[in-house]
């Protein structure tokens, strides 16, 4: 195995272990599954819709992740700074970006695991009707990418501060901005003052806009580039923040 891959793997493994040795992982997964269920069934009237699809399920994800993903990501770097272990980690023979990518991947995989545990939903719609499983797969892919984008934002905010609470709040606010930019009521309001070009530009930075494509079963390379680009940008900025922190 390549040295960089090894280091990323080692760091990711430790980070993942950290979730499961504390109650964080279990609490998160249970709450995520309960909320996903509550949003889908009572709130969206899953049964009354009489649709063989998971639209009611995916519709809520951008709001659900708004609070849950920052809760997972808030400790990534702030905890390292608070404990002082960042000094230990970065004086090991690893580069900054290996550490950033390793930690990010571990958390992303963890979110992926929580998402995968919603599989009874898929079984349910398949039992009740004949859904288009391709569309459902697209929904999951989009949801996973969106979780990664939120997580990258949390990763960035956690590098800024040693307080997990500050990191959480900053991250929720930034993610909210990313959602709201494409929220139809807001766009309608903006359309009173701005031209449609401006509205489209604003909406195009929204995770909601890009995620809605996946919900319809469309995998557009533009949407994938958007999410991956957002992740790359946030992780790159995290690297800059950490470097400036070290430089004093």
């Amino acid at each position: 195995m390549n040295l960089a891959v090894r280091n990323i793997y080692t760091i990711a493994k430790r980070e993942m272990g950290g979730y499961f040795t504390s109650p964080v992982a279990y609490v998160f997964i249970v709450i995520f599954l309960i909320l996903a269920g509550v949003f889908t069934f009572p709130l969206s009237d899953f049964f009354a819709r009489n649709e063989a699809s998971l639209n009611a399920f995916f519709f809520w994800h951008c709001w659900l992740y708004l609070f849950l993903v920052p809760a997972v990501g808030m400790r990534l770097w702030s905890e390292e700074r608070r404990l002082g272990t960042i000094e230990l980690l970065l004086t090991m023979p690893v580069t900054g970006w290996q550490a950033i990518v390793g930690k990010f991947l571990a958390s992303w995989l963890f979110l992926g695991l929580a998402l995968a545990l919603t599989f009874p939903m898929v079984i349910t719609v398949n039992y009740l009707g004949n859904p288009d499983n391709g569309v459902i797969f697209c929904g999951y892919l989009g949801s996973f990418l969106m979780a990664g984008a939120y997580l990258a934002v949390s990763c960035l905010t956690s590098a800024i501060t040693r307080s997990q609470v500050v990191s959480f709040i900053l991250s929720v606010v930034l993610c909210l901005a990313l959602v709201m930019a494409g929220w139809p009521p807001l766009n309608d309001m903006l359309s009173q003052w701005f031209s449609s070009g401006v509205i489209n530009a604003v909406a195009s930075i929204s995770v909601m806009t890009h995620f809605s494509q996946f919900q319809r079963g469309i995998i557009d390379s533009g949407d994938i580039v958007f999410f991956l680009g957002l992740i790359f940008f946030c992780l790159f900025t995290t690297g800059v923040v950490i470097r400036s922190y070290r430089a004093g």
């Binding site: 272990g17 040795t21 404990l83 272990t85 000094e87 230990l88």
Partner: peptide, 8 residues
């Protein structure tokens, strides 16, 4: 101050 990962 000998920093350590407290969850390990």
């Amino acid at each position: 101050n000998a920093p350590l990962y407290t969850d390990m």
